[in-house]
Structures are given as structure tokens and as C-alpha cells.
Nucleic acid binder design. Structure first.
Lengths: 87, 87, 87, 87
DNA sequence: GTTTACCAATACACGC
DNA sequence: GCGTGTATTGGTAAAC
């Protein structure tokens, strides 16, 4: 039979504990993320009940997000130009 | 020139306001979700710095999630049986 | 020893041949794709030799592509509106 | 109003033209690459229609590619030896 | 070797 | 409820 100490040969107790902590942190964050996904789904349900077309609304929100990203990238490009001009 | 009332012909002010609120709520939740995504990525960075293999860790968490799902299904099945027995 | 006919028990000769053809076609296309990847890398090398900042150029090309996609999505949203108004 | 010559202060016409050419070449190659991606996807669709498991086929092709890479390494090693023998 | 970008695979939402 | 189409996620490859 394999004892606790044998297992420890492969990975120190401190390391094992650290691994457990990492897993716990990630799973906690994943759970919070899943909750938000549920919340969002519920809002879309409300939207539908209210009579709005969810597909259209999803597209609108998607486009608004793209616009924000686009602006951020334009900024990034500007920064790149600035950096390039410093040489 | 197009007046405010012309716009209102297409969609009532109250409806427009409601739509804005829905968009605001969803975008707020999306933003929180994005933050969590960032947080998770940062934890994985720590994991890597610590010397763990992130690919393996991702696999572990994925497997544990599957187990959780299976357990949830078992629970659901149990509830079904319990309900059936109450009839 | 396993004969040819034994193998054929598992997959008909015609089917085996068909499989080989699919693999050949895909690998041919993959090879062409890899060549293009090489070609593109070479152009970026030229770009660098010429004195342009490749990072900037990559960003520019990325933004141009996004603009095209963005326009396509705007069209899609318009189509959604049209569909919604038909009701 | 800003004249053509003002623009030229920042980047010579020849340089601008060169830049346009680089962008055109890269975008042309990108487009061809995208076509091949589409072609490959279509072949996989055929594969599926034919009754093969695409996931398995992808794995097969991936393994064959690895073998090719290994063979390429062998070739490179051989070249190294050949060069060494010429000295 | 780190990070980013792409691509396939899965999960989810909607309409029939 | 099923099948389609879309959004997210996970894995892979390339760039710096």
C-alpha cells in the first residue's frame, strides 16, 4: 500500500497545497462567471417578455462592443506610431 | 428638421428609455464577466510562474467540472425519483 | 499473419481509397496554405528591410480587415431590422 | 487647407506608394489563405457527408504532419552532417 | 518563452 | 422536442 509520504515523494506537501489553492481560486472565479452568464440570460428573458427582439438586441450590443474595441485599437495604433517616431 | 416627436412616432420615449436600461444592464454584466475572465487569466499566469503546467491544470479543472455536472445530473435524477414516489 | 482480405473486412477497398483521397486533398490544401503563410512572412521581412515598422503594418491590416467585417455586420443588423419590421 | 506637399513632408510619395503596394500584396495573400481555409472546411464537410468521423480524420492528419516534421528534422540533421563532411 | 491571434469544438438560444 | 445557427470556450500555431 502507498502511504502519504510516498505521494509526497512526487510532490512536496507545500506544492500540493499550493496546487489545491490555485484550483480553488480558479473554480471560484469560474463559478462567479457562470452566475453572471445566468444573470445575463435572465435579462434577455425580460427583454423578450417586454416585447423586444432579443436577436436584434444581441446584435446591437455586439456592435457597440466592437466599436469600443475598434476605438481602443485605433488608440493602440496611434501609440505604435508615436513609438515609431521616437526612433 | 426632424423633431423629438417624430422620433417618438417610431418608438415611445418610455420604450426607448426601457431599451437603454436593458442595454446598460447587459453591458454592466458583460463588463463584470470580462473582469473575471481577466482575473482567471492572471491566476493562470501565477500558476505558470509557480512552475505548474497550465495545460495540465486546465485539463484537471475541466475534468472536475465534468464530475460536478455528472453529480448534478445524479441529483436531478434523484429528485425525479423522489417526486415520483410522492405521487 | 493478417491478409489483405482481413483488413478489407473492416473497411471496404473503395472506402479505404476514398479515405486516402480525402487525406490527400486536405494535405494538399494544407501545404498550399503553409506556402502562403511563408509568403506573407517573407513580405513582412521585405517590409522590415524597407524600414517600415512591421508591428504597425500588422495593426493597420488588422484594422482594415475589421472595418470590412464591421460593415458586413452593420448590413446584418439592417437586415434584422427589416425582418423585424415585416411583422 | 493642407496641400499634397504638406503630406509629402511626412512621408515621400514614393514611400507612400511602396507602403500601399506592401499592403496590397499582403491582403492579396491573406485573401488566398482565407479561400484555402474555406476549401479545407468544405472537404471536411464532404468527409462528414461520406460518413467518416472528422475528429478522427483531423487527428490522423495531425499525426501525419508530425511525422513529416520529424522527417524534416532528420533531413536537416543529414544536411548538417553532409556539410560537415565537406570540410 | 511569452503572448497574441486564429480555428475548431462545444454549449446555448431561437424557430419550426 | 429537434434542428439550425450563433456565441463562447479551449486548443494550436505564429509572432515578438
Amino acid at each position: 500500500m502507498m502511504s502519504e509520504s510516498d505521494r509526497a515523494d512526487q510532490m512536496g506537501d507545500a506544492t500540493r497545497e499550493k496546487l489545491r489553492q490555485f484550483i480553488a481560486r480558479i473554480e471560484r472565479l469560474d463559478a462567479e462567471k457562470a452566475e453572471l452568464t445566468t444573470d445575463i440570460r435572465e435579462v434577455y428573458s425580460e427583454v423578450k417578455s417586454f416585447g423586444f427582439d432579443t436577436k436584434v438586441l444581441r446584435k446591437i450590443i455586439s456592435l457597440r462592443k466592437q466599436d469600443v474595441n475598434e476605438r481602443a485599437e485605433q488608440e493602440a495604433l496611434l501609440d505604435l506610431y508615436m513609438d515609431a517616431l521616437e526612433d
